[in-house]
Computed example of a mutant assay.
Amino acid sequence: MSASSLRGRGASHNPHHRFERIRIDAVDDGWWQEESEPTRATEVRCEQSRSAISRNDSPDIPFARSLNPYRGCEHGCIYCFARPSHAYWDFSPGLDFETRLIARTNLAEQLARELQQPGYQCQPIAIGANTDPYQPIEREHRLTRGVLEVLLAHRHPATLTTRSTLVLRDLDLLGRLAEQRLVRVFISFTTLDRELKRLMEPRAASPQGRLRIIETLSAHGIPVGIITAPMIPMINDMELERLLEAGRNAGATSAGYTFLRLPHEVRPLFESWLAEHFPERAGHVMSLIRQSRGGRDYDSRFGHRLRGNGPFADLLAQRFRLAIRRLGLNRRRQEHALDCSRFAPPGQQMALWPEADE
């Protein structure tokens, strides 16, 4: 089945994943039968999580703790580096990643328990580092809102990354967190072209919608940054400066970027998508990717996986540095540091002097 017949989805099929013990392949045995179409409906399985906070010590990631309310993502971004994680639950990184989702329904309660453990040391938590915390099923399950309520009650700092206008639903909580320097929001932004967005990120917000998110958050005093991620050679890299300028004009005060990553099952999914939508340049795109990955499709080494290396990747990095300097988007750490000193679980005695809250 071609990708064009699955409107509204990024992947066109369910490829095998690396943990499968038994593989079933369809063959023509001469007996005709009606083929069933891969499901387009979204299925949600509820999960009781044993832990809320994930910890990492990766030297090239700017956070040590993260939290993801959902596994899988209905936005369907074809390039998503998180797709292979779905294989751990015996789901395909293809259509399953977009349609068979897992909601961690007790996440807020588990987070509260972990924050109240004796000896807990406060550090900012990155929300949505793997999958979008404001994907469509958040409207019903409200897990991200529950997490924000716990963080506000504990005065705990966090960053939040999304590409969904649903984040504006929680302006009340984000505003109160921002007043205490406890939150920063990042909007993932890949293109200003509505048609390209539809092909790459079929169920994510439009480019105009994302600019509206930035404008609204900024108007409410909530620090917001733009992440141009991923940059894909010959697909959207030519938009880098325009994206950064549009984000700055909308109110973003910081910026970041990453180079396209193709770990595990993402590579064949991406190549299939390229062949479907950009057949005339697919070979050139993959050639530039391999030139930026030491001749391979992907380089997982720390310090290389997010940026790449070689002439094309180096030029992209130089363009980014020059653009953020020109646009004044290079002052993230100095101006918007999050405050860990306010952390206090409910019931714990607060500071004697109120100056910190003023």
Results as ranks from 00 to 15, higher is better:
Lys197His: 08
Arg181Asp: 10
Pro124Phe: 02
Leu173Ala: 06
Arg198Asn: 08
Ala11Thr: 10
Leu107Thr: 01
Thr105Arg: 09
Leu306Tyr: 04
Arg145Ala: 14
Ala64Glu: 11
Phe270Tyr: 04
Leu316Tyr: 08
Pro263Ala: 11
Cys73Arg: 01
Pro62Tyr: 12
Ala317Pro: 02
Phe278Cys: 06
His141Glu: 13
Ile53Arg: 00
Ile324Ser: 03
Phe189Glu: 15
Asp172Val: 14
Ala129Pro: 03
Leu240Phe: 03
Ala282Pro: 00
Arg55Tyr: 14
Ser300Val: 07
Gly308Phe: 06
Trp32Pro: 11
Asn68Ile: 08
Arg169Ser: 08
Asp29Phe: 10
Met350Arg: 14
Pro124Trp: 10
Arg113Gly: 05
Val150Asn: 00
Thr42Gly: 01
Leu322Met: 09
Gln110Pro: 02
Phe312Tyr: 05
Phe259Pro: 03
Leu269Met: 01
Arg296Gln: 14
Arg210Cys: 11
Leu338Thr: 03
Ala219Thr: 02
Ala204Arg: 03
Leu168Ile: 08
His284Trp: 14
Gln121His: 10
Tyr79Gln: 06
Leu171Ala: 08
Ile226Thr: 09
Gly10Thr: 09
Val27His: 08
Ala112Tyr: 06
Ile232Val: 05
Ala252Arg: 00
Tyr88Gly: 07
Leu168Gln: 04
Asn56Ser: 11
Phe186Pro: 04
Ser254Met: 13
Asp172Trp: 15
Thr216Ser: 08
Arg40Gln: 11
His304Met: 13
Ser58Ala: 15
Leu329Phe: 03
Arg325Asn: 06
Gln110Leu: 12
His336Gly: 02
Ser206Phe: 10
Leu338Ser: 05
Glu35Leu: 15
Gly308Asn: 05
Ser4Trp: 09
Leu192Asp: 00
Arg242Leu: 07
Arg169Cys: 13
Ala275Leu: 04
Glu140His: 13
